[in-house]
Design a protein around this nucleic acid. Structure first.
Length: 467
RNA sequence: GGCGGCAUAGCCAAGUGGUAAGGCAGAGGACUGCAAAUCCUUUAUCCCCGGUUCGAAUCCGGGUGCCGCCUCCA
């Protein structure tokens, strides 16, 4: 079995063949940092975090780059409204972005380049495009000549005629053709943020930043380029056009696009104003439940946001957590011994199922169902009267590896020590139970429950977990 | 107008030819001093109508409803 990926470029699932045997280059379009991100934005970052982890699990040395768009119209506008500067605003929301990502368990990319730190690369690219006849300057602005190459529209599968007749493309007197797009924008009066260029003071257009940063960090051709579906056109379409014109080589082998987050039946988007920010959500819900929610459906399908859904995810998450706590409790008293062969066979089977799910276009929904099967298996082991330590350890390792390291949904139960006072209350309760003083025993259990410690009596002694 | 997607149990959600994964919630049972956790059992005319096929949630045709892209947006 090899990994199959649905490629937007071909509209088919294709076997994944990276350019190099052991290295994978991956670029995901990051946020424009003029505000906090919402749960729909987070979907992309969480999902591709899992993709990266899975590729690593599969033995690839992944180089993962994700940019920050830290200068554009919206930043300029937002900075003006808030009475601050563009760099200050960008800095603030970059920090906020990382706080959100940390809460959601998203690992850092290898590089998080910022557009404003790569202006020279963009200027160079634009110059090359002009030299090659793919771009033209008009009064301080530079535009890309979309129709110069006849494959414009190949990613979004729109013919040039269709795009034109869409009639929603911005009309700009300066453009030779409505489909042309800005590579460089001349500074407008009152704008403070600007860079020198051969065409005068200005700033880059949106699309060129990704082309320049991809080229600098990952090369002319990369393996995977990804983002939300809404970036497919025009952003990614324009990126392909200008990058391939610039380098003369294919830009990316696989284009992956996420489905949307919906509110009710409508797409969640900043322009519709129906957004829910991660920053607020993570105060209300377990952030891991948010991560679980984002991975609970196949990435190309839409997900509808609802309070009920997240609550359901929180309940499901408890099942993971209980299982690992119960495993570690059972490990304390388990007899030494190697893992039973049938346990190893079952774990191997689960591994195959997990890989099958992920290999089939990164089906996290199915991968999670395999994780639940592993949890079920663990629960069965834990309740057996005799079980060798090795069986428990291997099962725990499996759950940590697939549920934790790859999916990022399972946490290590860690060192479970309690305060001395609580320990002595537990001890007192055990004495009370021995003396059949169940009233006292139950009172202690209730008291601890109120303090967030749930006690459970098992054949291996009292077990506790935090609520 | 062009291109594309979705419709599966109370809820979430896999499954794209061989008589429906998984989770949440509910019900019953086991275990327990009682609980909890866990385990067992249980809940689906797969939007509608035709067609192809020995066989369709899955393929084809036609409907109905919803959504997206073609403009900034992850």
């Amino acid at each position: 079995m090899t990994l199959q990926l649905y490629n937007t470029l071909t509209r088919e699932k294709e076997p994944f063949k990276p350019l190099s045997k052991e290295r994978v280059t991956m670029y995901v379009c990051g946020p424009t940092v003029y505000n906090y991100i919402h749960i729909g934005n987070a979907r992309v970052f969480v999902f591709f975090d899992v993709v990266r982890r899975y590729l690593q699990y599969r033995g690839f040395d992944v180089t993962y780059v994700q940019n920050f768009t830290d200068v554009d119209d919206r930043l300029i506008r937002a900075a003006a409204e808030e009475g601050t500067t563009v760099p200050e605003l960008a800095e603030r929301y970059i920090r906020a972005y990382f706080e959100d990502m940390d809460a959601l368990g998203v690992q850092r990319a290898d590089v998080h380049p910022r557009a404003t730190e790569h202006i020279p690369g963009m200027v160079e690219g634009i110059s090359r495009l002009i030299e090659k006849g793919y771009a033209y300057e008009r009064d301080g602005d530079v535009y890309y000549r979309a129709l110069r190459k006849d494959d414009y529209g190949k990613l979004s599968h729109q013919s040039v005629e269709e795009l034109k007749s869409g009639a929603r493309v911005e009309v700009d007197e300066k453009k030779e053709n409505p489909l042309d797009f800005a590579l460089w924008k001349k500074t407008k009066p009152g704008e403070e943020i600007a860079w020198d260029s051969p065409w005068g003071k200005g700033r880059p257009g949106w699309h060129i930043e990704c082309s320049a940063m991809v080229k600098q960090y990952l090369g002319d051709t990369i393996d995977i380029h990804a983002g939300g579906t809404d970036l497919c056109f025009p952003h990614h379409e324009n990126e392909i056009a200008q990058s391939e014109a610039w380098t003369g080589k294919p830009f990316a082998s696989y284009w992956l696009h996420n489905g949307y987050m919906n509110m009710g039946s409508e797409k969640m988007s900043k322009s519709l104003g129906n957004i829910v920010r991660v920053k607020e959500l993570r105060e209300e819900y377990n952030p891991r439940a948010l991560r679980y929610f984002l991975l609970s459906a196949h990435y190309r399908n839409p997900i509808s946001f609802s309070d009920e859904s997240i609550r359901q995810m929180e309940s499901g998450l408890e099942r993971f957590d209980t299982a690992t706590v119960n495993l570690s409790h059972r490990l304390e008293t388990a007899l030494q011994g190697e893992a039973a062969p049938e346990v190893m066979a079952r774990l191997d089977e689960l591994t195959r199922n997990f890989e099958t799910a992920m290999d089939d276009d990164l089906n996290t929904a199915n991968a999670i169902s395999v994780l639940f099967e592993a949890v079920h298996f663990a629960n069965e082991l834990v309740s057996q009267s005799v079980v060798p330590k090795g069986s428990l350890e291997k099962t725990m390792e499996w759950i940590q590896r697939y549920g934790g390291e790859i999916l990022g949904l399972v946490e290590d139960p860690g060192d479970q020590s309690l305060e001395a006072e609580i320990e002595s209350l537990i001890e007192e309760r055990q004495q009370a139970r021995k003396n059949k003083d169940f009233q006292r025993a139950d009172a202690i259990r209730d008291e601890l429950a109120e303090r967030g410690i749930l006690l459970e009596d098992t054949p291996q002694g009292v077990r506790w977990r935090k609520k």
